[in-house]
């Protein structure tokens, strides 16, 4: 037993010794969005293999979780960059500033389309955003402008042009950035076309947001977790169901599932890239300027990410499903990134 307690002391001593060793770090640490994760990891791997620096460690924490860690402070124990599938919020900029993280470089990397897809075994659907809102919102405006709980059971109830099948949509949970973007671009896009609701935007902004972003909870919208692969498999098994996920999953599984037309636009690479497909969102990453001197390779990582061979139209990130930006925008963010320009302007 004496020998064992010695071992315990040794282990405890080791732990304390290592606590000191943790101060210095020679490896970039990146946290953030699970949507940007596949792109960020591809760049990290390329960066690690082609430069003398270590491969950065990339964690998938979600956009909000990533920004929270990122804004926690300056020092080796805090991450150097964070990925986000939405822009940083004003409240997050303030939190960052409060913890001393004042110089942050924003780099937009490209776009991601959000698709509504179903199995190839059934017919492709063509839907407007307004119809999408009527099918999936919790409350919808009835005649006379009053809000009533969504009564629609089948797609046909929403509009006669839609198929006569039960509304069943599998999608991500509220914690997901994909869900935020789907609500903001898809549902709100249809929502504000109703006159009564558009009027509400001016009078009661909070209520407007609640109405436009609330997804029904009566079983028509099924929260299927953050795992998009799972949703794709469920769609294969159930031809009547629809799924909501990022474009890259449609791209990889085009033999099994098809994207619905939204406002008459099919979710194709070209349509998302030129902005004609309505449900697409920009992706970002944020760089902590204060770390640039102390953590090696940060500038080079940004350069790798913003090189045309990565996020350009023929870059390796397009293979992973990233929709690239236009030439002018790419140039702007490449230059901002290279100069580490503090460019957040909210």
């Amino acid at each position: 037993m004496f020998r064992k307690s010695l071992a315990v002391v040794a282990v405890a001593g080791m732990a304390v010794a290592m606590a000191n060793a943790a101060e210095a770090r020679d490896q970039i640490r990146i946290v953030g969005s699970s949507t940007v994760f596949p792109f960020s990891t591809a760049v990290a791997e390329q960066f690690g293999k082609t430069t003398k620096f270590k491969t950065p460690v990339v964690e998938s924490t979600g956009s909000g979780g990533g920004l929270k860690l990122f804004c926690a402070g300056i020092g080796a124990q805090h991450p150097d960059m964070t990925n986000a599938s939405r822009r940083i919020k004003k409240s997050e900029v303030e939190r960052c500033a409060k913890n001393g993280v004042t110089d942050v470089v924003e780099v937009k990397v490209g776009y991601d389309g959000i698709v509504l897809a179903n199995s190839k075994a059934s017919k492709q659907m063509s839907i407007t955003r307004q119809q999408l809102f009527l099918a999936l919102a919790k409350d919808i405006p009835a005649e006379g402008g009053k809000l009533i709980p969504n009564p629609h059971k089948t797609w046909k109830d929403v509009d006669a042009s839609l198929p006569d099948i039960k509304i069943e949509v599998l999608g991500p949970p509220p914690t997901s950035g994909t869900r935020d973007a789907f609500a903001e671009l898809g549902l709100e896009g249809g929502c504000k076309k109703f006159k009564e609701i558009a009027a509400l935007k001016k009078s009661d902004k909070k209520k407007y947001k609640a109405v436009c972003h609330s997804v029904r909870e009566d079983g028509a919208y099924v929260e299927a977790g953050e795992n998009d692969v799972l949703i794709v498999r469920k769609l294969e098994a159930n031809p009547n169901a629809f799924g909501v996920f990022g474009y890259s999953f449609l791209d990889q599984n085009a033999d099994k599932i098809q994207g619905s037309l939204v406002d008459g636009q099919a979710p194709t690479f070209e349509a998302i890239s030129d902005g004609s497909y309505p449900v697409s969102r920009p992706l970002y990453f944020y760089v902590k300027k204060a770390h640039v001197g102390s953590i090696p390779g940060m500038k080079e990582y940004v350069a790798e990410f913003t090189a045309d061979k990565a996020f350009g139209p023929d870059g390796y990130l397009t293979d992973k499903g990233l929709i690239p930006m236009g030439d002018a925008e790419r140039k702007k963010f490449r230059e901002d990134g290279a100069a580490l320009r503090n460019n957040i302007d909210l």
Binding site: V16, A19, A22, R29, E59, Q77
Partner: peptide, 12 residues
Amino acid sequence: INFFGMPRSAPV
């Protein structure tokens, strides 16, 4: 991690 300042993602 927060109190003893050990590294993130480490097996220890």
